[in-house]
Amino acid sequence: MAKQLYYEDVEVGIEIPPLVKCPTTRQLVQWAGASGDYYELHYDKDFAQAQGFPNVLVHGKLKFGLLGQMLTDWIGEGGILRKLSCSYRGTDFPGEEIVCKGRVANKYVKDGEHIVECEIWTENPSGEKTTPGNATVILPSRAQDKKEA
């Protein structure tokens, strides 16, 4: 497991370590089974083409899940994901890379909680942000740890 991230480690503007993914059609079918979302747009190519898309689409909520993975990897076990929000603006297709990225937008302490707000998004191979959003996480603080010790 990666070493724990602390509130003091992050500054506004720093990047979240990117998570590179390349969903396959298999992964889309696995997601359908796991999420119970059996919409044909995500596995039936003829259906997707009849709807005007060149291929089946990656589920929006699967991209939500990937952004979630990027964040839980980053904040570690000591961090808490409080809010995750994203919009499914652009389509992504299986076999194409999806890079999950993020940047710290704000950090502050409120009611004793060390809060970090981030912009997050997924990027397609053309560098377009197909799934922009934001997230709020609570990180442990070194100062607090010392006080409690």
Binding site: V29, Q30, A32, G33, A34, Y38, Y43, D44, F47
Partner: peptide, 13 residues
């Protein structure tokens, strides 16, 4: 249907 096949894949792994 294609839908049934995907459900089967999910249910059986």
């Amino acid at each position: 249907t294609t839908e049934m096949l995907v459900k089967w894949a999910g249910a059986t792994g």
